[in-house]
């Protein structure tokens, strides 16, 4: 039964790794783009927030399912 917890931990860890790398690159490119053309700053920031939401879509789904595993499946409750 402890394997559920390990599975949830792996899901959380790998998802976080991917999202962190993605967000880092995204942030870097945003600063670069704004530095190159400061007047485009607000528009780039808007796009950055949209993409930030899209980047951590899959990891957050992983987090949601991992939490479901930890709090519902692990104590052996629910379908």
């Amino acid at each position: 039964m402890e394997l559920v917890i390990i599975a949830a931990a792996i899901m959380l860890g790998l998802g976080a790794l991917g999202a962190a790398v993605g967000m880092g690159l995204l942030g870097g490119k945003l600063i670069e783009g704004t530095a190159r053309q400061p007047e485009l700053g607000p528009m780039l920031q808007g796009k950055m927030f949209l993409l930030a939401g899209l980047i951590d879509a899959i990891p957050i789904i992983g987090v949601g399912i991992a939490m479901y595993l930890i709090f519902v499946v692990a104590p052996g409750l629910g379908a």
Partner: peptide
Amino acid sequence: FSLGLRLFGNMYAGEM
């Protein structure tokens, strides 16, 4: 599928 689960994942994790 991703559209629905993205909202669910964020809100479920936030509430948790």
